[in-house]
């Protein structure tokens, strides 16, 4: 049995992204490096054979997903798992949290100029943000950050994958 087939089996059976370390638990002979090599081998194989799916890297892990060109066909199914799109308010709030985390509600509201309590609650319920700590100072406000689910929702490998407009780096540094 080839190592890459074991990795393939694990990826096939999973509904969520798995990290290389998690996949490596499948066999004694496996380690994270071996998993990565096996995934590369599989990726090339899928590419070569023009499979309808590919192994994608997201949220620090790997997951088998269908290729984008098949989306129109899959969308014909009345699925329960379709990705529910976020509202403009949710996207703006997430943008502030993603780039400024850890960040308090007050800071988010100062940037957006509107009350964000309800949208924050929704984002928390959807598991896209979570409380990551408390700030020092008056009232010790809760600080919010993004979750692994956030990365999965936007198809990002890690926070490093967030779009980085040039001037933003300055803003981040100044804090």
């Amino acid at each position: 049995m080839r190592i890459s087939r074991i990795v393939e089996a694990v990826l096939f059976a999973s509904e969520t992204p798995l990290t290389a370390e998690e996949i490596a638990r499948a066999a004694e002979a496996l380690d994270a490096k071996g998993v990565q090599a096996a995934i590369e081998e599989l990726r090339q194989e899928y590419e070569r054979e023009e499979r309808a799916f590919q192994i994608y890297q997201l949220a620090d892990g790997y997951q088998i997903l269908t290729r984008p060109e098949y989306a129109p066909h899959l969308e014909r199914f009345d699925s329960i798992l379709g990705l529910a799109r976020l509202s403009q308010a949710a996207l703006e709030t997430l943008a502030v949290i993603a780039y400024r985390q850890p960040v308090s509600r007050i800071e988010i509201e100062e940037i957006r100029g509107v009350n964000c309590a309800a949208v924050l609650r929704t984002l928390q319920e959807r598991g896209l943000v979570e409380v990551v700590g408390r700030a020092e100072g008056l009232g010790r406000p809760l600080l919010y950050g993004t979750t692994r689910q956030f990365l999965e929702h936007f198809g990002l490998r890690s926070l490093e994958d967030l779009p980085r407009p040039e001037d933003l780096a300055i803003t981040l540094q100044n804090r």
Partner: peptide, 23 residues
């Protein structure tokens, strides 16, 4: 941040083109 929200929306659209198991 409104711009960044827009790029997040684009990322979301791209991601929505891929389906995992159980779709």
């Amino acid at each position: 941040f409104r711009e960044l929200a827009r790029s997040l929306a684009e990322a979301e659209s791209d991601r929505a083109q891929h389906f995992g198991k159980g779709y």
